[in-house]
Simulated assay, not measured.
Amino acid sequence: MHATRSHRSAQKGFTFVEMAVVLVVGGLLSWAAFSAYDTVLDAKDRRQAQDMARQVQSQLRAFAVRHGRLPCPDASAAGTGLESLVGGVCGTGNLIGWFPYVSVGADLPVAEYRARYAVYRAPNASAPADADLALNLERSGDPLGHVNHRDVSDLIVALNNVAGLALATDQPHLTGDGGVAGAVDCATNRQMSVAYWLVVPLKDRSGDGERLDPPQASAGPCVFSPGTPVSATNDDVVLSESPTQLAGWLRKSLP
C-alpha cells in the first residue's frame, strides 16, 4: 500500500513538472512568434518608407526640370505640404523643413511617412557663382526671353558651384554609415555635402520622444549616409544626392 501511494505521488509530481515545462516552452514560443511578427512588420514599414523616399526623389527631380530650382522646404510645424515662399521666393535661411508634397503636385502622406527635407543654399552676389539650389536664377547669361533663360541649365551651374565648395557644417551633409564610410558621428566624421537629403522617420527607436533618431534632428543639417543599417537606436530611411550626381541626371533630361 505504501509503495502504491509513493508511486502515485511520483506520478503527480511528474505531471506537475511536465505542465510547468509546457507553460515555459509555450511562453517562449509565443514570445518568439510575437517578436517575429514585429520584425516582419518593421521590415514591411521600412520597405514602404524606402519606396516613398524614391517617389519623393522622382517628384523632386521633375520639379527641378520644370522650375530650374529645387523645392523650397515646408517650414510649417505640422507639415502642410506647401513651400514656405515669401513673395514667391524661398525665404532666406529656409533650408530644412518638411518636403512640400502639395507644391510639387503630390498627395500629402500620413504623418508617419512624411519626409524631412534639406536643400543646399549658398547664395552669392555674383550670379555665375551662386549656389542657392532653391532659387531660380539666371546664372549662365541667357537674356530675358531666351528659351534657356532661368531653366534647368542654370540649376546645373548652381550644382557645379556647390560641388566646388568646401563642406560647410551649416549646409546639408552626410556623416558615416557605421561601416566603410566610418562612424555615424556628425561631430568627428563629416563625409560630404549633398544637394539635398530626405529622411523618412519610422519608430522612435532612440526613445527621445522624436521620431527622427540621432544623428538626425528636426533642425540639423547632418544625417547618416544612405544604406546605414537599422540598429537598436535608429531605423530612419535616408536618401540623398551629391551635387555631381544630380547635375548628371539633369543633363540627361535636357533636350
Rank of each mutant, 00 (worst) to 15 (best):
R66C: 08
V180F: 04
R47P: 10
V162P: 08
P255F: 06
T169G: 09
G179D: 11
S30Y: 09
R46V: 03
H67G: 01
M52V: 06
R211P: 01
D74R: 03
P128L: 12
F34V: 14
D213T: 06
D74Y: 06
T15K: 14
S242V: 00
V102L: 14
V237W: 01
A127C: 02
G182W: 03
E83I: 10
E138F: 02
A106H: 01
P229R: 03
A43T: 03
R116K: 11
A49C: 00
R116S: 10
S153F: 08
T188V: 08
P73T: 04
D204P: 00
V104Y: 08
R121Y: 05
T80C: 00
H173L: 02
P172A: 00
F16W: 12
Y101Q: 11
Y117M: 01
Q50I: 10
L23A: 09
G79M: 01
G88C: 08
V89I: 10
A77L: 11
K203G: 01
A33S: 09
K203C: 08
S153Q: 04
W249H: 13
S58C: 13
I96F: 13
L155Q: 01
V65S: 03
L135P: 05
V40F: 03
A111Q: 15
T80H: 03
A77V: 06
G68W: 07
L144E: 15
W31T: 05
V40H: 02
G26L: 07
V237C: 01
F63V: 00
D51S: 14
P172T: 07
P243I: 10
A115C: 02
N136E: 10
